[in-house]
């Protein structure tokens, strides 16, 4: 049995002031995620996917409940500690890449290491290694504006990976990519998971991207609605996902 990398316990998140427009974005959610797992979070718009991700990624604070990442309870940490935690234990991939456009790709990837005070001697091999993994070793000296969306997202993935975080959080990484680039990126992410034992949490509403996951949790109206596991081929899993999504739409069809 593998160690759990993420333990979410009774997580609750409300927005708004008490008495006025109180809105529960997350409603007592609990789940675990093991080391080396590749988990997908799916659900319709407004289901609470982004809120869940923001809270797990320490960008937002939970109203109730606890979250443990790699054995650390992040719900009790202070701002400065959270920042340090993010920079060491988490890697982010965003839909809009979020690369710093005034830094070269190399500098962008090196940034998390620089921030942790890793020496220059160690930075270079680390960046080269992760660049090779993602197939972007040829564009390291370029600036973000001069490369394609697919390359940008690979660069962002490289930046998320370079400091070997406990977990990668990906928010719609294929959202701004065409299907070819999207598939090739998901292919790479899946390989990272399989060959390098990287724990990944992927938030998406694209069934094709989600089909690369090993397990998918569906949420609706802030609650866990269903959970499915991939046993057979990716094609079959894709079909299974489509079926669940059809269920979401079904009540309105009646």
């Amino acid at each position: 049995m593998k160690q759990p990398v993420l333990q979410v316990n009774n997580l609750h998140k409300t927005y708004g002031k008490k008495g006025e427009n109180l809105f529960s974005a997350l409603n007592h959610v609990s789940f675990d995620m093991n080391q080396g797992e590749f988990v997908g979070i799916m659900g319709p718009s407004g289901a609470g996917k982004t809120t869940l991700l923001n809270v797990i990624s320490t960008l937002d604070k939970a109203s109730e409940g606890t979250i443990q990442i790699a054995g650390t309870n992040i719900t009790e940490m202070k701002q400065g500690q959270l920042a340090d935690f993010r920079s060491k234990q988490l890697g982010f991939i965003f839909q809009d890449f979020n690369l710093l456009e005034n830094l070269t790709i190399y500098e962008n990837i090196a940034l998390p290491l620089s921030l942790q005070g890793v020496s220059t001697k160690k930075i270079k091999p680390a960046v080269s290694k992760v660049a090779v993994k993602l197939g972007i070793e040829g564009i390291l000296e370029k600036y973000p504006v001069t490369i394609s969306g697919g390359q940008k997202q690979r660069a962002a993935a490289a930046r998320a990976l370079v400091h070997e975080p406990a977990m990668i959080l990906a928010d719609e990484p294929t959202g701004a990519l065409d299907s070819k680039n999207a598939n090739s990126l998901m292919e790479t992410i899946a390989q990272l998971n399989e060959n390098h034992d990287v724990s990944i949490m992927l938030v998406t509403h694209d069934p094709l991207s989600a089909s690369y996951c090993r397990r998918i949790m569906f949420i609706q109206d802030g609650k866990l609605y269903k959970e499915i596991h991939r046993d057979g081929s990716r094609m079959a899993f894709h079909q299974e996902i489509l079926n669940v999504l059809a269920e979401f739409a079904a009540p309105e069809m009646e």
């Binding site: 920042a83 993010r86 920079s87 982010f92």
Partner: peptide, 8 residues
């Protein structure tokens, strides 16, 4: 930068 964990 804040998102990727740079202290304020």
């Amino acid at each position: 930068l804040r998102k990727i964990g740079v202290r304020k």
